[in-house]
Design a protein around this nucleic acid. Structure first.
Lengths: 300, 300
DNA sequence: CTAACTCATGAATTCAATGCATGTTTTGAT
DNA sequence: ATCAAAACATGCATTGAATTCATGAGTTAG
């Protein structure tokens, strides 16, 4: 009997965003009265209050809060579906929404995206770095269509494939005492300043796979947003950083930084591409994975 | 301008299910004309065809197929949201939708569910064993609220917790030549008939962790649906099975079956409970996890 | 205490969704 | 071939649900 419609979701959402029915009405190009009527009717039909009216304020009830969470989850999906359908109309293939879960992933992506865009002029590319939850959650939740990550997940309706093998190395400046050493041991970093991207320590391989097992912590730890600045700091002797070897090499000549193996065996890493299994057949998605795979064989 | 409404999703879905507009109209308690008009309008507004009209048949276009997949994903969520809201109305807390990913999980669940139902009379419990993709996908997709699984996944917006440690053992009948042996080696099973639940081999620990590493395969492999029948078969000497020790013990006296350690160190397993992190605070959900945790400490 | 703002509500109105009647095409049986 | 049945399309009429309008009642702040 009662039907939860898109309008209801939109109203609840708008009220949450704007704080009042009146303001929400404006955004939705409706009158305050319309919203009031609409929600009133829904409340009657479901037999549950969405908001408690406290003075002239609307405070969501438990049911209201739940409805809001549903709205925040579903409305974006509806919106995206519409957009996608319109793209079909214009002969565009669609938008490839790529999610990134690590900084080196981004650097790698830049190399692959440009040839892809050239091959697929009717596909747009969107890159997102922030998700409601994790990248995998974003894949499941249809926030993104493709995930670039160091942490794959098999056997789940998703499909992962490695597209880049690389070595994580220590990068030091030209006059650093360790420059020229073939490899470095954890305790040699005890007096160093470690520069890294601003992510939790348990996401930094140099900690989880190198320093922490040896019980070592660097003297100081400094987070920096961008690779460029990070390496300028390293070049000027203000600290050391851990980066993929291929990324370090790109800066080696220009800045005079050098790469040093972490431990005797080095730290090996991979970057994976993940998609929803059900969509493995979509041509422009498949093509991206193919292109990435080709890149791998050339040696990125 | 164009709005993708719930009706559109419902129509596309119904047409897919029933094969024709006319039949779909009946299910939706509308006329064939209404559906025709509705979709026509949507097509005009979006500028894309949903179906190609081939004779008197409707074949979904690419856009139509896409729309159908969206419908199949979103309509159930809307339906469930409605149901949930009605539950709020009746003072019920909600429905705890539990997903099960392994057979022992089910046996374990049975023990925990009954005290839970007693403590939370206003919560319904639903158990699902089949998902569109994996259990983890079902959690992300809001098909279920709680997952019972041997394969946890950390750091993703989900929250996993171990609720049972147990040993996977070999179960043999009373007159079996191995009965009484303290532990068994892989090659001793080469001439046996192995009875297991009907799941792929790569989901059976006795294969992945015991037989396959040693390069052994049992003489025969027979899948059986239920634990009872499985153990009756074992008791009557028709084969051997691998089960949790605690589960085998429950049948030990009645059927005279005995448990034997697999290898010298045994195979240790865990069962985990997973929920969406955002919902960790929901009282009746939290209570289930608490109850499970308490069970663990008593020794299940 | 009033001015300004909020949401609620009943009645009027509008406009979109639906149904009806009918047309067109396909399908399949005779 | 022919004809009846079945399925979708479409123009027009109708209905009714959603929206607006006008107003009321309550809250807040200066």
């Amino acid at each position: 009997m009662a039907q939860l419609e898109r309008t209801h979701l939109a109203i609840v959402r708008a009220v949450d965003q704007h704080g009042s029915l009146t303001a929400a009405a404006e955004q939705l190009h409706l009158t305050q009265s319309a919203l009031s009527h609409a929600i009133r009717k829904l409340e009657d039909q479901l037999g549950v209050a969405i908001w408690t009216r406290e003075g002239r304020r609307l405070r969501p009830t438990q049911a209201g809060a739940y409805l809001l969470s549903v709205a925040n989850r579903l409305i974006p999906q509806l919106t995206h579906a519409e957009a996608r359908l319109r793209q079909f109309a214009q002969g565009e293939r669609g938008t490839l929404r790529i999610g990134i879960e690590c900084h080196p992933c981004y650097a790698w992506l830049l190399k692959v995206v440009s040839p892809y865009l050239a091959n697929w002029p009717d596909v747009d590319v969107d890159v997102k770095q922030e998700f409601q939850f994790s990248g995998i959650g974003a894949l499941f939740g249809h926030e993104i269509d493709l995930l670039v990550t160091p942490d794959p997940l098999f056997r789940t309706g998703l499909q992962f494939e490695a597209v880049l093998d690389y070595e994580q190395v220590l990068v030091v400046g030209p006059r650093h005492r360790l420059a020229g050493t073939p490899c470095v041991q954890p305790d040699q970093l005890a007096q160093e300043t470690l520069i890294s991207y601003p992510v939790p320590i348990d996401r930094l391989d140099i900690y989880t796979q190198f320093l922490l097992p040896a019980g070592i912590r660097p003297k100081r730890h400094k987070p920096i947003e961008t690779t460029d600045i990070m390496l300028q700091m390293v070049a000027s002797g203000r600290g050391v950083a851990a980066l993929p070897r291929w990324l370090a090499n790109e800066y080696a000549e220009r800045l005079g930084v050098t790469a040093i193996r972490l431990g005797e065996r080095g730290i090996d890493k991979q970057i994976f591409l993940g998609i929803r299994q059900a969509e493995a057949g979509i041509d422009y998605l498949h093509a991206f994975v193919e292109l990435a795979r080709a890149h791998r064989n050339h040696g990125g």
